[in-house]
Amino acid sequence: MQELTTEEVRGLGHAVGLDIQDPELTEVTYSLNALLEDLDHINPPGLETVEPLPILLPPC
């Protein structure tokens, strides 16, 4: 997958109301790219069809 640049990460920050400057910007860029890359590599069988159920709901 294509990596995000620092400028793109700064833009993502603006989109959620965060003004991210260096030195944090460089570290966040590495960190976000690493996480997205790792996530991109996880593609087990059933991923397309499974419905997300983040929590175990108590019975009504």
């Binding site: 990460v9 993502l12 920050g13 959620v16 965060l18 944090e24 960190s31 976000l32």
Partner: peptide, 10 residues
């Protein structure tokens, strides 16, 4: 760094 990174998760 973690909070900023997590805040940007697509």
């Amino acid at each position: 760094i973690a909070y900023l990174t997590w805040s940007l998760m697509p």
